[in-house]
Amino acid sequence: MTEIRTPRLLLRRWTDDDLAALAEINSDPQVMRWIGDGSVLDLDETAGDIERWEEEWDDEGFGIFAVELLASGELIGCAGLSVPGSPPEVQHEVEISWRLGAQFWGQGYASEAAHAVLEFALQDRGLERVVAVNRISNEESENVLRKLDMVLDRETKDPEHGFALNIHSIDLTQYEA
């Protein structure tokens, strides 16, 4: 079982006990406003996400981790790697992403989890490059991307929803510098 421990977090595979907590996070419009079309997800949609993420672990050797607080064992969100289906410019790349419950924002957890995922991608899994896709107006995610030393590759539009997007990247050489 793949696990990553940071000073405050445990990144691990999903269990049945995680569904209700992630569904609660996914039902918050404030959390979901930057994801997809901004719609909240219900319990069944959240279960579908977890199932897809677990399948990606089996198929790719990486995926989206459940993120919990080491001190309490509380699930606070997710972070990890996936092969994005959109936008077309990154369909064959590996994308890093994260999503935390709003009560856990502003405490450095997203950066801590993302740093661990990036190290996992480039050092443990031997990937040569990782991308991140985010909406241009999402300043919180832009701050995390700066902390990861990811550089802006290009701007594009979400082909389904029309949102302006930034595509950032980092390769192994940049990471090791």
Results as ranks from 00 to 15, higher is better:
Glu3Pro: 03
Leu41Phe: 10
Gln103Tyr: 07
Arg129Tyr: 02
Asp59Met: 12
His92Pro: 02
Leu81Val: 06
Arg33Ala: 08
Ile96Thr: 07
Pro29Gln: 13
Asn143Asp: 11
Pro7Glu: 13
Val151Lys: 15
Asp42Gln: 10
Met150Ala: 05
Phe120Leu: 09
Ile170His: 01
Gln91Met: 13
Ala79Gly: 06
Ile25Tyr: 01
Asp37Asn: 15
Val144Ala: 00
Ser97Tyr: 07
Glu155Asp: 10
Phe163Arg: 04
Ser169Glu: 08
Leu122Asp: 00
Glu95Leu: 05
Thr6Phe: 05
Leu22Ile: 09
Val94Lys: 01
Phe62Lys: 00
Asn138Leu: 05
Glu93Ala: 15
Gln123Cys: 10
His115Leu: 14
Arg135Ser: 08
Ile76Thr: 03
Gly106Leu: 08
Asp42Lys: 09
Glu56Asp: 14
Ser137Arg: 14
Ala116His: 01
Arg8Asn: 15
Val130Asp: 00
Arg154His: 11
Gly77Ala: 09
Tyr175His: 09
Thr6Glu: 10
Asp16Met: 10
Ala116Gly: 05
Arg129His: 04
Thr46Ser: 13
Leu118Ser: 01
Trp14Ser: 00
Phe62Gly: 00
Gly36Pro: 06
Ala164Tyr: 08
Leu10Ala: 09
Glu24Met: 12
Glu155Ala: 09
Ile64Glu: 04
His168Cys: 06
Gly48Leu: 12
Trp34His: 04
Ser86Tyr: 07
Asp124Gln: 14
Arg99Ala: 04
Gly108Cys: 07
Asp18Gly: 07
Val94Gly: 02
Trp34Leu: 00
Pro159Val: 06
His92Ala: 14
Glu74His: 12
Glu60Ser: 14
Leu118Gly: 01
Trp34Asp: 00
Leu43Asp: 05
Pro7Asp: 13
Val117Ser: 01
Ile170Gln: 00
Ile50Lys: 03
Glu45Asn: 10
Val83His: 05
Gln107Leu: 14
Val94Tyr: 03
Thr15Pro: 05
Asn143Val: 07
Glu93Tyr: 07
Asp44Asn: 13
